[in-house]
Design a protein around this nucleic acid. Structure first.
Lengths: 368, 368
DNA sequence: TGCCCTGATGTAATCGATTACATTTACTTT
DNA sequence: AAAGTAAATGTAATCGATTACATCAGGGCA
């Protein structure tokens, strides 16, 4: 072995071999990226040792390790991900499935996911389903083909299933995690907020200020979040000793436009509620806008509360009283759970992060 | 070491499955995904023919092709991306580099990118630089390692370079496209709006209403967009016959908070401008908020204009007069150019999409 | 001394596709 | 009929890593 170490000393020569493609002079740029072979030759070890020096450093002698690292630095070697994946069946990639990438609600969640994945050495592939079944089929095939090690679902249903659980879910044999919109009966970990408790809290808060007629602007009827929030609304009324009045439930779909429509309907009413609880900030902003342009003052004439605490909730006029969702933390938690699953650790089946009632200016006691 | 024991279990099972190759009965769930070999055997052709039937269908006889497709349907075969990439050196993945994923300005752009890439069969990997040099180095290595075929840069500089062009750009030998923030002298295609012309248009519009003292709230000093918009502001003043007054330039950084600060400074001034042109909607919203809470009416006492036309520009109170950026189209254009590059087609070196002056309620003629 | 064990390393099979090159067949052309 | 050409297909090398298995040196122990 002493001999070969000595040989290692004269290894300057091998540098030439790497890019020998008959190109001119002292071009410092190797046309081909360095492979593990090149590193092995330079460090005078086998490719197996190079691989081990990176994956399991303590199974390689300190001297060999040092030579390998030196050779890696010299060649600028970076392992080829395709080759690595082909052999080891690990991609170090995670798929994030979104119903709508343009929805600003998701951006901070995405950031939470991204940073956590990054720190664990994983990359993030994004799929924006955009309500398209073809895209969904495509991404189902994606996961099946082993392009990712796991997935985080923000869309409220499994591949091949509709939101209400109808249809046969595609057979996906990689770890999944549901984020924000829970997927009932899917047997996968859920990361979410306690929507019911949060809606209850807001309703009770409104009641505590003296509001007796509290309207509710709903999300889409089939939405899981909507169900929970509606339950919370009713819980809150009950707890405050108020009776539930179906007349006070307006249907929306979380969008600003549906908030505008709800506002119009309220304006048109003879007997108006004194407070409106919208289950999304966008709807609240739309409602406020409509109520104000009809000459009503918010909160003096009517209080409006939102849900989510999106970026512009604080900047809105008046600043919105709402339920704060820890979006970044939600993303981080989902990514953490998924990584745990990927690395074979135990995980919690359900994580509920705390929301917070944020009191700003759009809610006040009703006029006496 | 429970983990390794568990692994041993799994492995054993795994081996059994493989072992029973000529498997009996109607086991419906193949534990291993079908490989090209399985399809070839079933269709009674070679793997080469299967590969060709998918990649170049017209080089395969109709009969063979039909048998192959049938076999693929039966087995549920999906080509293994890692194997394909390893051999062909194509990943069908594109990296999108963002300065800040949580910034809502990017979400609609991302959607434009995603949908275009998807239609062309490419996937999207997102990197949120978050101002971190380590992340940048990591993603530079990423591209170098051949994990993606190309990249779209929204961060205004090349890997390894700072925004002002200092530093040695990392040697990246895949196609790149700069989106929104141009990268000067990088020799890569740029997709952007004409910031200068847009700022000029807004400034002239304000002047045309009779405003003579038009303040300007800037973006970060080192930002390319800021330079162009500032030029446009001065162009506009000149074209309207107004003189430039450095006193009217307030420095911001595109954030809502900096708009608030600018608003405070304006409120404190004895001689106030009659209009304020903020070079981002967020700053405009922040400024409006501050001005109003100081008792000034917008637009009656002071007009405020924005730039970008983000989601909430229309919902703000008052609705913001601003410059509309076609964000989705910007994303689409960038993705289209990149795909053209990837497929060896000629592309334009510079694409400038049209902006639009959107007149809403935050700007009005000055009081007489 | 002889045997076994451990740690370090090397050899080569393997992952699953693509594709250069070889081969076969059928059909034209002279 | 011989030769040339084109179309269809097959054979096997190849991409670049990981890793099962083999090998070997040196140390501990009976």
């Amino acid at each position: 072995m002493a001999a070969s170490v000595k040989q290692g000393r004269l290894r300057g020569k091998f540098m030439d071999e790497i890019g020998r493609k008959g190109r001119p002079g002292a071009s410092s740029t190797p046309l081909r990226a360095a492979r593990i072979q090149d590193v092995a030759r330079l460090a005078d070890v086998s490719t197996a040792t190079v691989s081990r020096a990176l994956a399991t450093p303590d199974r390689v002698s300190p001297e060999a390790r040092a030579r390998v690292l030196e050779a890696i630095a010299q060649t600028g070697y970076v392992p080829n991900p395709a080759a690595r994946t082909l052999r080891s069946q690990k991609t170090f990639m995670v798929l994030v499935v979104l119903p709508d990438l343009a929805n600003t609600f998701f951006s901070k969640i995405l950031r939470g996911i991204e940073e956590t994945l990054f720190d664990a050495g994983y990359g993030m592939i994004i799929s924006d389903l955009d309500g398209s079944p073809e895209k969904e089929a495509h991404f189902a095939a994606y996961t099946a083909a082993g392009r990712v090690d796991g997935a985080i679902l923000l869309n409220g249903h499994l591949f091949g299933q509709s939101r209400d659980g109808k249809g046969t879910p595609a057979k996906i044999n990689i770890p999944l995690v549901a984020l924000c919109e829970a997927i009932p009966n899917a047997g996968i970990p859920q990361i979410e907020i306690d929507n019911r408790a949060a809606a209850r809290q807001m309703t009770r808060y409104l009641a505590s200020l003296g509001h007796a007629r509290i309207a509710y602007v709903s999300g889409p009827a089939e939405n899981v979040l909507e169900h929970e929030r509606f339950q919370g609304y009713r819980d809150g009324l009950l707890a405050a000793g108020l009776s539930f009045d179906p007349e006070l439930v307006l249907s929306g779909d979380f969008t600003l436009e549906s908030g505008v429509r709800a506002g119009q309907e309220l304006v048109a009413r003879a007997e108006r509620p004194t407070a409106v609880f919208c289950t999304s900030d966008e709807m609240a902003i739309g409602a406020v806008r409509t109520l104000r342009s009809a000459g009503l003052r918010v909160p003096e004439d009517i209080s409006v509360a939102g849900f989510d605490d999106i970026e512009f909730a604080a900047a809105a006029q008046p600043a919105l009283t709402t339920i704060h969702q820890p979006r970044r933390e939600l993303g981080q938690a989902a990514a953490t759970v998924l990584i745990d699953l990927l690395q074979g650790r135990e995980t919690e089946k359900r994580i509920r992060l705390k929301t917070e009632l944020v009191v700003r200016d759009s809610v006040a006691p009703p006029r006496a």
